[in-house]
Design a protein around this nucleic acid. Sequence first.
DNA 1: GTGTCGGCCGTCTGCCGACAA
DNA 2: TTGTCGGCAGACGGCCGACAC
Lengths: 383, 383
Amino acid sequence: MRLSSSSSTTTGFNAQPEEGETKCLNSELWHACAGPLVALPQMGSRVVYFPQGHSEQVTASTNKEADSTIPNYPGLQPQLICQLHHVTMHADIETDEVYAQMTLQPLNAQEQKDLCLLPSELGTASKQPTNYFCKTLTASDTSTHGGFSVPRRAAEKVFPPLVGQPKRHLLTTGWSVFVSAKRLAAGDAVIFIWNENNQLFLGIRRANRPQTFMPSSVLSSDSMHIGLLAAAAHAAATNSRFTVFYNPRASPTEFVIPLAKYAKAAYHTRVSVGMRLDAALSSLKLLISEEEYNMLWTWYMGTITGISDLDPVRWPNSHWRSVKVGWDESTAGERQPRVSLWEIEPLMTFPMYPSPFSLRLKRPWPSGLPSFPDQGIQSLNFQ
Amino acid sequence: MRLSSSSSTTTGFNAQPEEGETKCLNSELWHACAGPLVALPQMGSRVVYFPQGHSEQVTASTNKEADSTIPNYPGLQPQLICQLHHVTMHADIETDEVYAQMTLQPLNAQEQKDLCLLPSELGTASKQPTNYFCKTLTASDTSTHGGFSVPRRAAEKVFPPLVGQPKRHLLTTGWSVFVSAKRLAAGDAVIFIWNENNQLFLGIRRANRPQTFMPSSVLSSDSMHIGLLAAAAHAAATNSRFTVFYNPRASPTEFVIPLAKYAKAAYHTRVSVGMRLDAALSSLKLLISEEEYNMLWTWYMGTITGISDLDPVRWPNSHWRSVKVGWDESTAGERQPRVSLWEIEPLMTFPMYPSPFSLRLKRPWPSGLPSFPDQGIQSLNFQ
DNA sequence: GTGTCGGCCGTCTGCCGACAA
DNA sequence: TTGTCGGCAGACGGCCGACAC
């Protein structure tokens, strides 16, 4: 039996176009598309917001560095402790890439004095749904000549069992419409996932990044960088709320960190120059079971070569990427020479003796980047 | 003879993809696509920049109003006299819509005192090229079933004369590729124009606006509005340069006005409440010969009902849309109830007696909006 | 003069089976 | 198991002529 429609039925993918606004996604769908490595702080918790990191995301999104003439904001701290009022999950209406919108409110002086950490504020691990699969598209999958070949493991996990003469899992009718509508190409990945209402949805993680760049014909990149800083400074000065977007695909690093995670790293992690990087990203521990992600990650090792401000003029005393690292391997060029404290975590291994599990550090996605389509499959036909 | 390719030749439209950056357009091409109503201030001249108007463009582009919590910028004047250092003309890489990038530098106090107007600063009329034509696409033009029917007047004006048995001007081979590549639909308009290098280019003015909305997943609209103000305020405080984008399709009104035009209106135009609007847009005088644009314009009449600040709290003493107008006709709902002084110009007609030419005011484009493709036709085949 | 459609032919899409990695 | 391709039938693209408004 094949996963294909009979000639008498029209079926496949139902477009659910949104009008001018992006859809607010179910958490499971969002996390399935974002991948197991992306965690969001919990709504209502306290977080630390880094304008520098936010600026880096804008740079990555617009592909334009901020000008050096951007004014200093003396009143703006390099890290703002905020109450996280809202976290909503969205998918870009154009690119289908997942992103999150957060409403932050800087704490006032009294609230900052009364800080006491709650265990829940360490950040919850993103609950990855189980009834889904992800496949990187092959040339045949996106060719007009054929359909979509469903890996057998995935098909047995997600689709009803085949009956009759089970030969192969193939999606035929309807697939090419989806491919052309979403402009998918070989190398892009698709995610099949059932939501709680028994609807099958499709997510996308695009391979090629450049498409993401925002058309810069609205606001100059300088104004955007200034606006980000001014909005944060204004909110901090008046203890009012402000809104940021977090795009896990565009941003090299998260810039809204759970308070407890930050505090733990800032006050309990001891690093010094010359120290071997025998630490592991805590979030990576979740990763081992995710076979499909293994290839996206590598174990890196290095030595701390310095601890200093990334931008001593505009952002003195910032913890953002304050740890300089000399990487061991030859591919160091493509890795950040600086990391933040909370990206590493001490492990009790033998110092000076590198362990194969010593440092596992996120590096830029080599090929597959996440995305989400506003399309759902209402039904699949079996014959 | 038809404008179609012989079967032995491959021709049509050559894509000229740009990498990550929009192309800087030839002035004639840009103005042909923007239309005769769009004028740009001259490079090197002095202009008046209106943050309010800029904010309106951002609102129109993002479809998001600025939040009321946006801070006041007490040091920022509602109108900034600036030196216009650069004007570059571009076409959006995604939508092909024309826009302009301007580099402005606020004058310092001394320069503002020494103001003397140059005649050249009144703003030059946009020089419309003549060897071009514009046609709104019909259903047949965009259908996959047929080609593009060239109006005869246009064909004789732009294309070489037909020989043999001239039956009809039809573009066939290559046309549908262009239509699908640019996602054109009936109602969109295309512009055929020869540049000075004897290359045929195609411009686009899209009919449907909504596509233009920027994906808002990079920066919150509040931050954008704040950024615009902060950038202008910073530039004004330090007499440094800043950059703005002017999108004639998105913006309801120009927000960078030639200094002389502004000064003339501000100091020589006398308006009072109850006055009949017997004034005409000066730029509209160019329009009469442009038959194709006639349908886009209407003659409106009304009465000045008030002269006051549009936003007395944040922008006191601003000339931006300070004239309130009560329109005569029933379609008043779709028209701005406020105009700026330099949008009208006194005419010596009989006061109180409406004249058919009394008020010609720009109103929002009803259907066709301009755009430009990064594609040029290198050659057309004739048989 | 120009928008639209019927007709006709060539190309491409898309479903299936087969085969190899 | 699954990526790719040959084969084939049907759909669609696309060029021309005709006709109506």
